[in-house]
C-alpha cells in the first residue's frame, strides 16, 4: 500500500527528474551527482561582482585589452620571438600576475603571429631538462637536445600592476592600473606599450 511518505519520495524523484531535463546541460557527459549544497556551473565570462578585490573579470578585461592592442600594431611581422620578463605586483593584494600573462600569451600563441621563448620563471625547468638529457647518461647521444641551441627572444614583455585603495568605512574605492611594455632586447627601445585602468567601488 502506498503511504504518504512513499508518495512524497516519488514526487521528489519526479520533480528532480523534470528539473534535470529543463536545466542547462553541464559541460560534462558524466551523470550529475548533487549533495546538500547547491553547486552550479556558471558562465566563465560572466561579470563577477562578489567583492571589490581583484577578480576573474578584471583578469579577462586586462588580457583582452592587451592582446587586442598588441595584435593591432602590426609589430609581429615574420613571427618574431618574444619572452615574458617580469610582471611586478605592486599592490597589497595577493594577485597571481602570472595568470594575467598566461592569458595574454595563450591568445597571442593561438593567433600564430608570434613565437614565445621560455620566460625567466620557466628557464630553470628548461635548464634542468637539458642537463638531464646531456649529463645523466640515460639518453641516446643523437637524440638529446643540444646545449646552446636555444633561440633568444627579440622582444621582451614587462608589466606591472598597481592599485590605489581608498576606504572611508562606508565606501571602498579600488583603482587598478595594469601597464605592459614590449622592449626590443637588443636595442633596449620600447616598441609597444599600453595600459588598462579599472575602478571598482563598493558600498557597505
Amino acid at each position: 500500500m502506498l503511504t504518504r511518505s512513499h508518495l512524497l519520495v516519488m514526487l521528489l524523484a519526479l520533480s528532480s527528474g523534470l528539473t534535470a531535463c529543463s536545466s542547462s546541460t553541464p559541460p560534462v557527459a558524466s551523470p550529475v551527482l548533487r549533495f546538500d549544497r547547491e553547486v552550479n556551473y556558471g558562465d566563465d565570462k560572466a561579470v563577477e561582482l562578489v567583492t571589490n578585490e581583484f577578480g576573474s573579470t578584471d583578469l579577462q578585461m586586462i588580457a583582452e585589452k592587451m592582446t587586442g592592442s598588441l595584435l593591432e600594431t602590426g609589430i609581429f611581422q615574420g613571427r618574431p620571438t618574444v619572452t615574458i620578463s617580469t610582471v611586478k605586483n605592486k599592490t597589497s593584494e595577493y594577485i597571481d600576475t602570472t595568470n594575467i600573462m598566461n592569458s595574454i600569451q595563450t591568445t597571442l600563441v593561438k593567433s600564430g603571429k608570434v613565437r614565445f621563448t621560455r620566460s625567466i620563471n620557466e628557464m630553470q625547468a628548461g635548464v634542468d631538462e637539458l642537463q638531464r638529457q646531456n649529463q645523466s647518461g640515460l639518453y641516446k647521444q643523437h637524440s638529446t637536445a643540444k646545449i646552446g641551441k636555444m633561440t633568444a627572444a627579440k622582444y621582451s614583455l614587462e608589466g606591472e600592476l598597481t592599485s590605489i585603495v581608498k576606504d572611508n568605512g562606508s565606501t571602498k574605492d579600488v583603482f587598478y592600473k595594469f601597464t605592459l611594455k614590449m622592449f626590443d632586447v637588443e636595442e633596449g627601445t620600447i616598441e609597444w606599450q599600453d595600459e588598462k585602468q579599472i575602478r571598482k567601488t563598493s558600498k557597505r
Partner: peptide
C-alpha cells in the same frame, strides 16, 4: 617557489 608577483604583497603586508 619563484613567484615574485605573489611574494611582493606578502612582504608588503
Amino acid at each position: 617557489l619563484n613567484e615574485p608577483g605573489l611574494a611582493a604583497p606578502g612582504y608588503r603586508k
